[in-house]
Design a protein around this nucleic acid. Sequence first.
RNA 1: GCCGAUGUAGCUCAGUUGGUCAGAGCAGCUGAUUUGUAAUCAGCUGGCCGGGGGUUCGAAUCCCUCCAUCGGCUCCA
Length: 646
Amino acid sequence: MIQITLPDKTVKTFPKGITGQEIAGSISEGLARNVLSVNVNGEVWDLNRPINNDAEIKLNTWDDKDGRATMWHSSAHLMAAAIEELYPGTKFGIGPDVENGFYYDIDLGDRSISSNDFEKIEQKMLEIARRKEKFFRTELPKHEALDFYSKKGDEYKVDLINDLEDGTISFYRSGHFTDLCRGPHLVDTGPIKAVKLLNTAGAYWRGDESRKQLTRVYGISFPKQKMLKEYLEMLEEAKKRDHSKIGRELELFAFSNSVGQGLPLWLPKGAELRENLEIFLKKVQRKAGYLPVISPHIGNKNLYIMSGHYDKYGKDSFKPISTPSEGEEFFLKPMNCPHHCEIYKNKQYSYKDLPVRFAEFGTVYRYEQSGELHGLTRVRGFTQDDAHIFCRPDQVKEEFIAVIDIVLLIFKALDFSDYSVQISLRDPRSMEKYIGTDENWDKAEQAIIEATEEKGLKADIVKGEAAFYGPKLDFMVKDALGRKWQLGTIQVDYNLPDRFELEYIGSDNQKHRPVMIHRAPFGSMERFVAVMIEHCAGNFPLWLTPDQAIILPISEKYEKYAKKVLTLLNNYEIRTLIDERNEKTGKKIRDAETRKIPFMLIVGEKEEAQGTISVRKHGSGDLGTHTIEEFVQMVEQEIHRLIPEI
RNA sequence: GCCGAUGUAGCUCAGUUGGUCAGAGCAGCUGAUUUGUAAUCAGCUGGCCGGGGGUUCGAAUCCCUCCAUCGGCUCCA
């Protein structure tokens, strides 16, 4: 007999060799029906795999991430089975579950498949699923496994097996389809009740551009048809938040073929929005001791040779700009740091002067591959809210905390709570590729970890993700479709101070090398605005939005009064418009709602007589009649809720 | 850069197998209306159907090519 501990800490005794499925059955019939896989001591297992020792287990249903993963992984096999039946001779790469569904990389030879073929494949998948094909696990020694796939002509599987350690290799078979697989899987295909293939994409074998490109087919599956319907509806909703779409509707930004790919044009409303962000950050930074600097859009090639960026990224830049002078070449600025290093070098610093913090909204240009461009999140010309802090090694932690404070202040001001934090450290297995002394690295890594802990941030610590020049802390957010984007970043840099031979005079009257911290709370203004749009669906915080209020006169008889209200509100620095069109009030309200203007101020006979305005709030409706002063207070209160400091 | 999809008025979209198929709604313009919390009415102007080549008596529709956008891959100082 063995002791099985359930998540609620109750302990049950079962005969040795009991399976997850049987345990579920002993608890309830419903659980037996809905269970998809079982975690045994933290590892996901097949439900029919015997448990031979005492263990802590957790039964996974659709509501558990691991349960869904099992379902989707099995669905990937199911899709492969369907594709093999429909397109004999197809070779298979890898087919894992992902955050929202699964994919399989396949090689169709001379054929190709597109979304037109999806329905056929989906039907076949459901047909197989309904047969409740069992998943059988088998194991083979490595050489036999290699033999099996060599004979089958599946070079991708051979490639995968070659990379595996010697020993036994597990396979899963369901129906006619057998796949190299670690598992785990569903007991059978029965629970897969609804499937939807979503799209296809080219994917290089093993992510290597020099290797063959396979066809990746993405899909998702559900235990209930209704869930699929809800998921598709959710996708439709997400599309409505797409920043490109909202950017066009609210006239924030545009692209023009005549100007060039990936070069955004900020329209008046968008520019106003962006300026509001910049003004806000400038105020915050001034308070935090940053000094403004400004550097040009181009820099001499030698500057980037000095910084090392030319070697690493020169080929991915725009072509150099040459001048009539022999051999002289300039590059569009791909980043601001070399310029800021030169600014630092302009004067001698004492240890008492540090830290020095140079801030600049610096526009930079990078030649992103055309397939990479994406709305405002991925462009070729963008502005970083950049700053470089030059400090002593003993100040790193303190400075980190101060930067985190700024990032958190900004996120709060924008009502931004859905973000994750990642700390990137050295790869302990290949320490040689990092520049800087071990001592400094240890200190900096420790400083970052302590700083995040002190700020109460829950950070994922990822070893091996650090840049060669220093560890970093990144703030990531997801867009409407769940894609991850990096926004704010704080990076320690030992490289550039070395390359530029930056110095300060220490208390010992000797020259010392400062540490440099790169930081950009927004990352880039373009990307940040894009994410912001998707985050709030275009309903920006009141302090940020381009137009805060619009006055809607009932008829042209009240235009004079409307203008008087406008002047008053302008005096209070409330960004206000008047809708003077010859339209009915209902129409004006509708249009103002569509434009997502926070406040609509309706003025007619009554208001003119009383010297008041009728306030309507975007999304919530009529707030009744108020005096101008009351309204101003309302606006100020709303603004101070998010940014009390300013 | 690579794979796949898409590309029709400023915007959102119809256009069946190539033959009155160049359309609709919104926006815009003109006029009427003087309007009270999500669309007043009428008339009118918008397009070389992404660009270029080809097939055909005839192409928005079929083929080739280029460009752009979207979804991925890869990359991301």
